[in-house]
């Protein structure tokens, strides 16, 4: 988990083109959407592609999205539990 979180933050910065941001600027416990980073629905699609491409994980149940994508920490937890 400790190694995954900074790596995931860097991947999110690159995937979402978050210019001028560093991993340290992202609070892993803060919400990714609306508040916190202020991401939107297009970003959610980008994150789904990131999960599949980098970790081989497919989001089978869209209902899980809200919980999985709540923060960097919940996303990292989901990756650790589902990584193939």
């Amino acid at each position: 988990m400790e190694e995954l979180i900074p790596k995931l933050k860097q991947q999110i910065i690159e995937q979402l083109n978050l210019e001028d941001m560093t991993p340290d600027d992202i609070d892993e416990k803060a919400p990714l959407f609306n508040e916190g980073l202020g991401l939107d629905s297009i970003d959610a699609l980008e994150l789904i592609v990131l999960l599949e491409r980098e970790y081989g994980i497919k989001m089978e149940n869209p209902q899980d999205g809200k919980k999985v994508f709540y923060s960097v920490e919940t996303l990292a937890q989901f990756i650790l539990e589902n990584k193939k």
Partner: peptide
């Protein structure tokens, strides 16, 4: 690059 799969929406939009 992705063999016509795993396409992200931003550049397309």
């Amino acid at each position: 690059d992705n063999n016509e799969g795993l396409l992200t929406p931003t550049a397309f939009i």
